[in-house]
Amino acid sequence: MRLNCPLCGDRDLREFTYYGASVYADRPEGGWSEAWDDLLHLRDNPAGETNDLWYHELGCSAWIEVSRNTVTHAISDTRLLAERKPAAKGAKA
């Protein structure tokens, strides 16, 4: 499996670190609340299409959102986290 880094191009999977669903980047405001339980622990965990958060640790250090299918491992799209689709932003993981 290879991931297309928007900055470096097609790279080996082993250069990337996985951080789960990309809503992990949407940190709640303030101290402990149920929203933190949601962020840290609970997952939609879909069998199918998902948007993931990957970090190009052994490359350019970019945070990347990857549209991927968890059943087929097919990757449909990648983009910098900063440029992610508005629909994904704020949606539940």
């Binding site: 499996m1 059943v71 491992h73």
Partner: peptide
């Protein structure tokens, strides 16, 4: 393999 998956097979790395 470290990434979320429902495929009953892994990857080569």
């Amino acid at each position: 393999d470290f990434y979320a998956s429902y495929a009953a097979r892994g990857n080569l790395p």
